[in-house]
Design a protein around this nucleic acid. Structure first.
Length: 597
RNA sequence: GGCCCGGUAGUACAGUUGGUUAGUACGCCAGCCUGUCACGCUGGAGGUCAGGGGUUCGAGUCCCCUCCGGGUCGCCA
């Protein structure tokens, strides 16, 4: 006991001592960040999670044996050093370092651990590929920016717990091994050993449990919950991710939004010291679509969409006419003042870009100083062109980009194009945080493949009271008491007021074509619970990873997750998923038909 | 499942029209150096050009297949 460190204790972290501590004896422990060997003088930057401190090994003050030992120190060796904190003078001061005015003159030291040459450099300038970084994640996480990201994430969790606790929320854990609820994302399944042929599912969210907690009387609940979805990955999607999940009883949507606006204000203040003005702006779903072509608009820049449908509905250009005839629309973006910024080749590239969103093409009108240029001008009358110009406020120096298609395709392609244009034209300012509520989502969506309505959110979402009559006559028009919270064009959370009346819930299942028997089998326990006194309730869940990504200024949630997975859902560090012993499979009553050699 | 981009030394990259012994930077190793801080100087080691097949007198380079990574569409109630 105690031999390893020989009774040494750290006096503090590496980057803590300042000029006011000069003259003190310090004991620091950490990793060798850089070594600079000048022959009879060796400098080492000692690093821990607070930063670095320069420590000096001087041949004139150390015994020969110790100095020779110091010369063997290499990158990432773990050291314990003890010596005097001295003030640096003159040219020795390094103003770029937090601790650049002081250094430790080493009197004695221990090499606590040696290190092989690290395969990737432990440095923020390290430009190793993400695959290498993930393979050696334990080294990658030593880098200051990754340490900063994970400490920020920790702070987010702390602020979240403190805030919701202060508002009277009770933190309750819900099971990770639970029951499969299809009709959502694909479930991760866990075979049962004691129930041959049966499976647990990992939760996609604690949705049904938190609703039952409302029935149990925990009228304000929250949880930082791990969730699992077996779907393809993206920069902002991992198979296992974390939600800040909350639910409230005896509330309307307004109450949920208010409590969460308080949370967001607190979160931004305490993590980034950014002031958020309340109340947050709101936009109705249909307006978000019409103006931004997206249900998660980035409002940090303009480039809003403009509807040309009625202006061109009688024109001779068959692409426009046909789209409108088929019930679609013709919409455009006026890129004001950027007429000269798009070559023919670049416009063609934008055309290819919108095709990835199923648009058939991109029409355009370029208002050059020497006249209007457009491949579609010949199909339009002067009156129609004038009408387009008036509608889109199209003036000399502007370029108009137009898509004609179904509403869904028009919105999707122009919505994506809008963001691409903003990036190309540098219209997005860093350090700006635009929070926005999107409200009045549609309750249901017609699914052409399955020939039925499906819930846009989930089937427990309450319709808006004034739209209840439409449930029977025109379900596609019914709006939901659902809301998303959007930050800089990223959906960071969403929620709704739930259905708490059995009759309405039955009707919902009916409309989405879920037979009573199936509903009973899947959600029977929740439906039963509703029979014993259900309070009106609603809530919201945030994607914690996305929130942290945006607060950290990262471009992927992988940068705020300690051990993330790569695109094929595997982990380069642990090599999960991996094959298992036959004995394990036997115990689980599983036969594996595909085996890798 | 579709589309796009990529895979060359430990790491990141360059590699011309297919042509000699595949280069550069960082890192690494050795030597020198008492104020460096992106230390410097001198020297050195280090390559399955992702894998397989094909075209060719000749392939890192061209073609096909596979694998791997990133982005994205579908998917993600």
């Amino acid at each position: 006991m105690g031999e390893l460190l020989g009774g040494w204790k750290r006096t503090g972290y590496c980057a803590e001592p300042t000029v006011t501590d000069v003259g003190k004896e310090v004991t620091l422990m950490g990793w060798t960040n850089v070594r600079r060997d000048l022959g009879a003088l060796v400098f080492v930057q000692l690093r821990d999670r607070t930063g670095v401190m320069q420590v000096v090994f001087d041949s004139s003050s150390l015994c020969k044996e110790d100095f020779e030992r110091a010369c063997t120190i290499r990158s990432e060796f773990v050291l314990a050093v003890r010596g005097t904190l001295v003030k640096r003078t003159g040219g020795m001061v390094n103003k770029t370092m937090k601790t650049g005015e002081v250094e430790v003159v080493v009197r004695e030291f221990k090499i606590l651990s040696k290190s092989e040459t690290p395969p990737i450099e432990v440095d923020d300038n390290c430009n190793a590929s993400e695959l290498q970084r993930l393979k050696y994640r334990y080294l990658d996480l030593r880098r200051p920016c990754m340490q900063k990201n994970l400490m920020l994430r920790s702070q987010v969790s702390t602020v979240t717990r403190n805030y919701f606790a202060s508002q009277g929320f009770v933190e309750i854990e819900t099971p990770v091994l639970t029951k499969s609820t299809p009709e959502g994302a694909r479930d991760y399944l866990v075979p049962s050993r004691v129930h041959p042929g049966k499976f647990y599912a990992l939760p996609q969210s604690p949705q049904l449990f938190k609703q039952m907690l409302m029935l149990s009387g925990f009228d304000r609940y929250f949880q930082i919950a791990r969730c699992f979805r077996d779907e393809d990955l993206r920069a902002d999607r991992q198979p296992d991710f974390t939600q800040i999940d909350l639910e409230m009883s005896f509330v309307e949507a307004e109450d949920v939004l208010t409590v969460n606006e308080g949370y967001l204000k607190t979160l931004f203040k305490e993590t980034l010291n950014v002031e958020i003005q309340l109340p947050l702006p709101r936009i109705k779903w249909k307006d978000a679509m019409a103006r931004y072509g997206s249900d998660k608009p980035d409002t940090r820049f303009g480039l809003e969409l403009c509807d040309l449908t009625d202006v061109v509905k009688n024109c001779n250009f068959s692409v426009f006419a046909n789209a409108i005839q088929a019930g679609g629309s013709v919409r455009c973006i006026n890129v004001k003042g950027h007429s000269a910024d798009f070559s023919r080749k670049e416009i063609d590239a934008l055309g290819e870009f919108v095709k990835t969103y199923r648009a058939k093409g991109l029409a355009w009108i370029n208002m050059k100083p020497d006249g209007l240029q457009s491949p579609i001008a010949k199909f339009l009358t002067d009156v129609e062109i004038t009408a387009i110009q008036a509608r889109a406020n199209l003036e000399t120096g502007d370029i108009l980009l137009i898509v004609a298609d179904t509403d869904a395709t028009t919105f999707a392609s122009l919505g994506a194009l809008r963001i691409k244009l903003a990036e190309k034209l540098n219209l997005i300012h860093a350090n700006q945080f635009n929070l926005l509520w999107v409200t009045e989502f549609p309750l249901l969506e017609w699914n052409e493949e399955e020939k039925r309505f499906v819930a846009v959110h989930h089937p427990f979402t309450s319709p808006m009271d004034e739209d209840l009559p439409l449930l029977n006559t025109d379900p596609g028009k019914v709006r939901a008491k659902a809301y998303d919270i959007v930050l800089n064009g990223v959906e960071i959370g969403g929620g709704s007021i739930r259905i708490h009346a059995q009759e309405l819930q039955k009707k919902m299942f009916d409309i989405i074509g879920l037979p009573d028997a199936v509903a009973k089998e899947r959600f029977g326990y929740l439906l039963d619970a509703f029979r014993y006194g259900a309070p009106p309730h609603g809530g919201l869940a945030y994607g914690l990873d996305r929130v942290c990504m945006l607060l950290a200024g990262a471009s992927s949630i992988r940068d705020v997750i300690a051990f993330p997975k790569v695109q094929n859902a595997s982990c380069p560090l642990t090599n999960a998923p991996d094959s298992v012993d036959d004995q394990q499979l036997d115990e689980l009553h599983i036969a594996c038909t595909e085996k890798e050699s």
